[in-house]
């Protein structure tokens, strides 16, 4: 068993010694914080544990998910209050969507000044700004693909000076691209029809009779 060397981290202005081989979330437990907020799946998929960190001598802070980041010497940690951006009520349209459908609910998307802060902030490594620019061109499928790994943590929106909400816009683009996918899933549709017309009845009767007696 190897005991790792402790490191000093700063949380809310106070310095603490913690073991060096643990995540920021595990360090919080180590410091006696039970964590009922800013915590979720512990697997980097829910976006609840967003943090801003800074290392000594670093000018710019770094953003990420606390369950996915190891502590290091001198790390300064501040938790953010989850996704601060507003959710727009954006229903799916009845007709085939276009980029105007997205802009109707997320008009601020067009205010993007291409500073790239969102891309830098994303803990999932998504080129968020590229996704926003692609939305201007209007290819929903491309935008949808771009946002596949998004965990909706909202860091992109939190750092945007133009108040764009890329993660929400991206999810809406995905929902539109999914619901209005150009090609039909014929096998699935056939199967639904087969079940509705009771095609498997005889097979079911045989199987259920046997299954009940096992």
């Amino acid at each position: 068993m190897i005991i790792s060397r402790p490191v000093t981290i700063t949380v809310a202005g106070e310095a603490h010694a913690v073991p060096g081989d643990i995540t920021i979330i595990q360090a919080m437990w180590h410091l006696g914080r039970s964590m009922e907020k800013n915590i979720g799946c512990l697997g980097g998929a829910c976006g609840a544990c967003v943090v801003v960190t800074r290392l000594p001598g670093q000018m710019l802070p770094h953003t990420g998910l606390a369950c996915q980041m190891m502590v290091v010497e001198g790390l300064n940690v501040s938790f953010l209050q989850g996704d601060p951006s507003k959710k727009t009520i954006a229903p799916l349209p009845l007709e085939s969507p276009s980029r105007e459908t997205v802009f109707q609910y997320y008009p601020e998307t067009r205010r993007c000044v291409a500073c790239g802060a969102c891309t830098t902030a994303c803990p999932q490594g998504i080129d968020v700004m590229a996704g926003v620019r692609e939305m201007m061109i209007g290819d929903l499928a491309v935008v949808a693909e771009r946002f596949t790994p998004c965990v909706s943590c909202g860091l992109c929106a939190a750092v945007c000076e133009s108040r764009v909400r890329p993660h929400r816009m991206g999810l809406y683009a995905r929902r539109l691209a999914g619901a209005f996918y150009p090609k039909k899933p014929l096998q699935l549709l056939n199967r639904i029809e087969e079940i509705a017309s009771d095609k498997f009845r005889a097979e079911w009767e045989d199987v259920m009779q046997v299954a009940e007696n096992v």
Partner: peptide, 26 residues
């Protein structure tokens, strides 16, 4: 198992993007 296919369709109608084949099948 019998309601599975209809439920997959319900999800897709909500916008869930399952991986597709070239021909559009799931």
């Amino acid at each position: 198992v019998e309601e599975g296919p209809a439920n997959a369709k319900w999800l897709m109608d909500l916008g869930v993007m399952f991986d597709r084949e070239e021909d559009g099948n799931l």
